[in-house]
Design a protein around this nucleic acid. Structure first.
Length: 637
DNA sequence: GTTTAGGATTCG
């Protein structure tokens, strides 16, 4: 440091970069590819940084010297780049190494010591730099979400990409395009690792140690460009493997076959895929070493015969009945995008086991939503009769208007007007051939209530007129004059309108009673749809979402249907068609389950309770599944 | 003094 020239370095905020300039910048690492050998002559590392201006900059860093590239180990690390050239790519500023490029890297954790990682023999570092790092740490703590991809082996799930911090125990050439790494992190996977078959002689490493650690080790196959890196690794190295992919090994349907987990480091550098050796003084390595020591001790006890062996290990195995013990997964539970409102006592069952069983049964499952139908929310809203279980479409506005017009052709009977129950008023339209609309205002104890508490019965109104009135009056019931009394219209129109809500009744299950029965409710403070329905002999229909979910947990795929009025999405099906905001919320929830433009591995898990039942279709019997007692978790809405 | 790559998962 003594040789450093007394220069005052200026750091340019990322929002003020100009093309063609060479600048010094500070930033928090938002994305990075660990250095890898490019197709040219240099090593390459792609790093995206962000600073307090909330502007991102993607930098292409090249160097013939691996060590000269920044030593970034995880998202959230803080970097300082000197002599970064700014150019424009795809209309966006882009950083690229220029002559004399140099970097420092710091841990991003608040409170961690501010120690620069660098290969530079001599660098300028002052109290101002110290403050820059601390300010970025504070800013990042509230603006950058901590890396969620660092996962311990006990927490891995099938179909996942994650970053693993581990120690190398063994390595072996498999073939030209793939290479085997045997690693451990001191914790045990919920499913046993697959075992890649190799010739004994080609394994480099302490095979007796590996044998003793047994199911604490996993087999990783690395491919293509990663093979060269893997070959160069030393046994005992502490590694971080980025974007490691898990896959559940295909089940051969044989009972007692343990489901095992495959680990692949696919070829390429997408998403920062790669391997780096972590230095011994890395804080994550400290933690790892402690976990390894503790686990090594326990493993030694196992090998003494104090504990025994494969059969007693609590891995997921399919028993002869097809049911499954999953408490290891339970223990390693990750957060789910849905939660159960009941049945938490149920053990989880993999879909492959459910698909082999008879109905009816109930299961707790954990799966991802591969796809769903219908795609448009409005297509999923139906009317459901809880009594006869029939489903019907929600009448379209045009049909509704026509049905109301039909009801309006009868002339109002004057002797049914102005009764003890209601006061009546006749409106005559001027420009529609003297069409008459009669409104009956229902009284309370002989007195007319305020309009916003008032129920009106309407004869001969159009949908437009009713909609207007519904914003003024508490409730509206469309009626017609009958031989002795006012009567409800046909149940193809709503029996009650409150604001924008239309309440329908079941044609099959209702047996209409006299309008006069409203008298028994006239003392109540408000007109409750279920009470109105009851006194009028109507079985009310529920607005429900009806959807088919294709669920996938990596062991199997199952179609389950969801019928829900307002619990699952916590959005009322009766209002969603009337409210753009609610429709947007629905779309957001579905996009959360199935994020557009991503693959199923990135989808969130859902925990659900489903029941199976048998449907007979002619001579065919089919088992169907329905989701129940499950809701979208509050924190994801 | 040029090129590399230019974030955006999978053959295995």
């Amino acid at each position: 440091m003594s040789l450093a020239p007394v220069t005052n370095y200026i750091y340019t905020p990322l929002s003020q970069l100009k093309s063609g300039t060479i600048v010094n910048v500070y930033g928090v690492v938002k994305f990075f590819k660990p250095p890898y050998l490019s197709k040219g002559t240099d090593y390459c590392s792609v790093v995206t940084i962000v600073d307090q201006t909330n502007v991102k900059l993607t930098c292409l860093l090249f160097s013939g010297n691996y060590e000269a590239l920044p030593r970034i180990y995880k998202i959230g690390d803080i970097v300082r780049f000197h002599r970064l050239k700014i150019q424009v790519y795809k209309n966006e500023p882009q950083g690229i190494t220029s002559s004399g490029f140099a970097s420092l890297t710091f841990e991003g954790t608040l409170g961690a010591p501010v120690i620069p990682r660098t290969s530079s023999k001599c660098f300028h570092f002052t109290a101002t730099d110290h403050k820059m790092v601390e300010a970025l740490r504070i800013w990042a703590s509230t603006h950058i979400s901590p890396s969620s991809t660092l996962v311990q082996l006990c927490n891995v799930q099938p179909m996942q990409y994650f970053d693993l911090t581990c120690q190398l125990l063994g390595k072996a050439q498999v073939d030209g395009a793939s290479f085997l790494l045997k690693v451990w992190d001191g914790t045990r996977t919920p499913f046993p690792s697959w075992r890649v078959s190799i010739e004994d002689q080609v394994l480099e490493g302490d095979s007796s140690h590996i044998r003793r650690l047994h199911n604490l080790t996993i087999d990783i196959l690395v491919y293509d460009n990663h093979v060269q890196v893997a070959k160069s690794l030393k046994i005992g190295n502490f590694l971080r493997i980025y974007s490691l992919h898990t896959k559940l090994q295909s089940v051969t349907s044989e009972s007692q076959t343990p489901l095992s987990l495959e680990f692949h480091l696919h070829g390429g550098t997408s998403y920062g895929r790669g391997i780096t050796v972590l230095p011994e003084n890395n804080s994550d390595v400290d933690q790892l070493k402690k976990a390894l020591e503790a686990a090594d001790l326990t493993a030694a006890q196992h090998s003494d015969g104090l504990y025994q062996t494969d059969q007693e290990e609590s891995y997921l195995t399919l028993s002869s009945s097809g049911s499954v013990s999953l408490y290891e997964i339970e223990r390693c539970q990750q957060l789910s995008a849905t939660i159960l409102t009941d049945h938490q006592y149920l053990e989880k069952t993999p879909l492959c086991a459910i698909l082999k069983q008879k109905a009816p049964q109930q299961y707790r499952i954990r799966a991802k939503l591969r796809s769903y139908k219908p795609k448009r929310i409005f297509q999923s809203v139906k009317l459901y009769c809880p009594k006869c279980h029939s489903l019907q479409e929600v009448p379209h506005e045009d049909n509704l208007d026509a049905a109301l017009q039909d009801g309006a052709t009868k002339t109002s009977d004057t002797k049914l007007q102005n009764t003890p129950l209601y006061d009546s008023q006749i409106w005559t339209t001027e420009d529609q051939g003297g069409r008459k609309v009669v409104i009956h205002f229902v009284k309370y104890n002989g007195i007319l209530p305020l309009s916003n508490e008032c129920l009106i019965l309407i004869e001969g109104g159009t949908l437009g007129e009713i909609s207007k009135l519904s914003s003024e009056f508490h409730s509206i019931i469309p009626v017609k004059s009958g031989p002795e009394d006012l009567e409800l219209l046909d149940l193809s129109v709503p029996f009650l309108i409150q604001g924008r809500l239309h309440h329908y009744g079941c044609k099959q299950c209702s047996s209409l009673k006299s309008i006069q029965n409203l008298n028994s409710l006239a003392g109540q403070t408000s007109w409750i749809p279920s009470s109105v329905a009851e006194v009028l002999g109507i079985v009310p229909l529920q607005h429900v979402f009806v959807m088919t979910f294709t669920l996938d947990d990596g062991t199997g795929v199952l179609e389950a249907y969801l019928m829900d009025s307002d619990k699952f999405f916590q959005i009322p099906a009766s209002e969603v068609l009337l409210d753009d905001d609610l429709q947007r919320s629905m779309d957001l929830i579905m996009d959360m389950f199935c994020p557009p433009g991503t693959k199923i591995d990135a989808y969130p898990w859902m925990e659900c309770v489903i029941k199976s039942y048998t449907v007979t279709n002619g001579t065919e019997q089919q088992i169907c599944y329905q989701i129940f007692d499950t809701v979208v978790a509050d924190d994801v809405i």
